[in-house]
């Protein structure tokens, strides 16, 4: 199935991209999406993730068409 992956801030800078579409097996988790999208790069310890713009946990299961985002702790305001 195809899903969209977005990276922000330092994670995007390190990876060298902000947005990508990848193919992944049914039943894949968010952590598996990270590994597939970054060629097994280490996920920064305090990284946060979201499915379709809602915060989620790394073992959440993704579905076709989902938008998965990874980003560091937020620093707005």
């Amino acid at each position: 199935m195809e899903i969209k992956v977005k990276l922000f801030a330092s994670l995007a800078e390190t990876a060298g991209w902000r947005e990508s579409s990848i193919q992944i097996a049914d039943g894949a988790t968010v952590l598996m999406v990270w590994a597939a999208a970054t060629r097994e790069a280490a996920l920064p310890a305090r990284a946060l993730c979201a499915i379709n713009m809602d915060y989620c946990v790394l073992d959440a299961v993704v579905h076709a068409g989902d938008e998965i985002a990874f980003f560091p702790p937020v620093t707005g305001g």
Binding site: F71, V74, G76
Partner: peptide, 11 residues
């Protein structure tokens, strides 16, 4: 809440 959870990042 904005400071701790809203997705903004400063460089």
């Amino acid at each position: 809440d904005l400071k701790s959870k809203a997705p903004f990042w400063k460089k």
